[in-house]
Each structure stands twice: as C-alpha cells, then as structure tokens.
C-alpha cells in the first residue's frame, strides 16, 4: 500500500476516462461494467488499495480512448458510490463528475430473491430498484419489496 508521503505514480492518459475514488477492491467490478476483458485493445491502468486522504484506501481505473454512457455511470455508482469520473482530452481534464445514484435503478441489478417475479422466466418486465438513503444506501425491489444492501448485490444484468 502507498504511504502518505509517497507520490502515487500512475501514468496520465492522453484521451479517455479516469475513474478515481473507487472503493478499495471494487476496481475489477468496474472493469467488468466497462466490458474490459482480455480482448480489449487500448491501454488500461489499474491501481488497487492505494492510499487516499479521503478514503484511506481506494482503487483507480484509467482507460484510454473510452467514453461512458449514463447506464454505465449508474452501474459504477452502485458498486462504487464515491467514485469520481474525469474525462480526459489531450492530457487535460475536460469534465469531472461525481457519480450519483439515481432514485430508481432500472434494468441493472438482478434481484437476489429467487422467488421474485422479476426473476420469473419470460415475464415481460425488467428489474427496478428504488434507492433508499438512511445511514447506508439500501435498495428496495419494486416487485418483491425486499430491501438489500449494496454488498448483497450478486449479479448485474
């Protein structure tokens, strides 16, 4: 792990996105959301469990020549609710955005309740979760009304 006084050396990218303040250990999930696997051709930088003033430990993902759409940003918000996204052009940050959980998460999370009608085969509906905020973020399935924590999400659709 990086110490406080050590500079964090991650190569800057020319064009693309840099996702910072990812909760420690969640970077692989972010890569999965972005569809980055062994077939991805552009450069990807991944840092895990590096020092952070704000979070103590964090992950960072930088991807060359890549943009993000709203759905991907919403998915990232679920696994890494503190993440910040920087859009980079010619080595400069042209836009910066903190991810925000929407009030409703549509077609992203598979309900972990096997008896939920949203998991029933061939029913023409999609999963919908309402975001409830108290101390921690909790999600409530529109159909079975079961409440789950972020850590209970097993599958993203």
């Amino acid at each position: 792990m990086y110490k406080r006084d050590e500079p964090l050396k991650i190569r800057n990218i020319k064009n693309g996105i840099s996702i910072d303040h990812i909760d420690a250990g969640k970077a692989p999930q972010v890569l999965r959301i972005l569809g980055i696997d062994e077939n991805f051709k552009d450069s990807v930088t991944l840092a895990m469990n590096v020092f952070s003033h704000k979070m103590k430990k964090k992950d960072i993902v930088k991807v060359e020549n890549r943009d993000l759409d709203v759905e991907e940003i919403n998915k990232i918000a679920i696994v890494a609710p503190n993440a910040t996204i920087n859009w980079i052009k010619d080595f400069k940050v042209v836009r910066k955005e903190k991810v925000k959980l929407p009030k409703e998460i549509v077609s992203i999370i598979k309900c972990p309740n096997p008896s939920c009608v949203s998991n029933k085969e061939r029913e023409p509906i999609t999963s919908v979760f309402y975001v409830k905020r108290n101390k921690n973020v909790r999600l409530v399935c529109k159909y079975c009304e079961r409440e789950i924590g972020i850590d209970e999400i097993k599958d993203l659709l």
Binding site: N113, S115, C116, V117, S118, K120, E123, I125, C141, K142, Y143, C144, E145, R146
Partner: peptide, 25 residues
C-alpha cells in the same frame, strides 16, 4: 407464489388488481 406477481399484474391491465397474497411478501 411469485413475490411481486400482483404488482406485475397491475402493470399489464387497465382494470383494478387486488393482491390476494404474493408468496411471502
């Protein structure tokens, strides 16, 4: 028995739907 079945039903019809019990929900 499927939880949320009554809500699903209410989304597909324009007549009133009353839940007579949806699984353990």
């Amino acid at each position: 028995s499927a939880e949320g079945s009554a809500r699903l039903a209410s989304e597909f019809v324009s007549i009133p739907v009353i839940n007579g019990g949806d699984g353990s929900n």
